[in-house]
Design a protein around this nucleic acid. Structure first.
Length: 233
DNA sequence: TATTGATCATGT
DNA sequence: ACATGATCAATA
């Protein structure tokens, strides 16, 4: 390992600096990056589901772990690590943000939390197959991405469909099958965590907190477009 | 075996 | 309870 690889002391102040650091990490294993950072590698992710994300945040100089703002607030960029298989296809959906179940009068796609979150994303693929020991999984080449007009339109359609159902008191009839590229699924500590929502007759009800997730077809396509057609980047 | 619904850790 | 970071694992 060259001594040139270092954890940033301050957050990146430009996309170029961020991109270069992300590119410098490509090819390293999680074990190497953890050792250089002085972090222990868990045996598996069962009780450390966010470990890879936190490790990459450190290496990229993200502002802070659990603040409700973009990872790179100064330059308006969100970081997403994404587990991929040996063909570069996503192994998991990607969490975007929690869905607002009340107080949605007047909210539009343009003003939505989803659209804001996805305005600019640094995707960092990481080998994610469970047969590969965690420490041996390697970081892939990064992609700085913004939604194309077509992608924005796909997301808008799904967002509007899902939000319509939420506003109309149908949240408990929504399943993960709704949405072509973005879905709504539980996002909670467990199935006993409840939050307020609108019932079928407009009355307040308690239901599971939900989150918006990008489906694998969507993230798979945007990664593929980049890696098979680099002229599009 | 791919997907949906459930879950884990930590900090505010 | 909700935000951050996501993956697990039962089941269709």
């Amino acid at each position: 390992m060259p001594a040139s690889l270092q954890i940033p002391l301050t957050p990146p102040q430009s996309e170029q600096v961020l991109r270069r650091q992300a590119e410098a990490l490509a090819g390293y294993s999680l074990g190497e990056l953890a050792a250089l950072a002085g972090l222990p590698v868990p045996d598996d992710l069962r009780r450390d589901k966010g470990w890879i994300g936190v490790l990459l945040e450190m290496w990229l100089g993200a502002s802070a772990g659990s603040k409700p703002e973009q990872d790179f607030a100064a330059i308006g960029v969100e970081l997403k690590t994404i587990p991929i298989d040996s063909s570069g296809r996503p192994l998991e959906t990607t969490f975007v943000c929690v869905a607002p179940l009340t107080g949605n009068t007047g909210v539009t796609w343009e003003s939505s939390h989803v659209r804001h979150k996805l305005q600019r994303v640094l995707w960092v693929p990481v080998e994610g197959e469970r047969q590969i020991p965690l420490a041996e999984r390697r970081v892939g080449a990064p992609l700085l991405w913004s939604p194309s007009p077509e992608e924005d339109e796909q997301l808008r359609r799904d967002w509007e469909e899902l939000m319509d159902l939420i506003v109309l008191g149908q949240v408990e009839r929504i399943t993960a099958r709704h949405g072509e590229v973005m879905q709504l699924r539980p996002k909670a500590a467990n199935s006993k965590a409840l939050t307020e929502a609108i019932g079928a007759s407009g009355e307040p009800i308690l239901t599971l907190p939900r989150g918006f997730y990008l489906k694998k077809n969507f993230t798979g396509a945007l990664l593929a477009r980049h890696f098979f057609s680099p002229e599009n980047k």
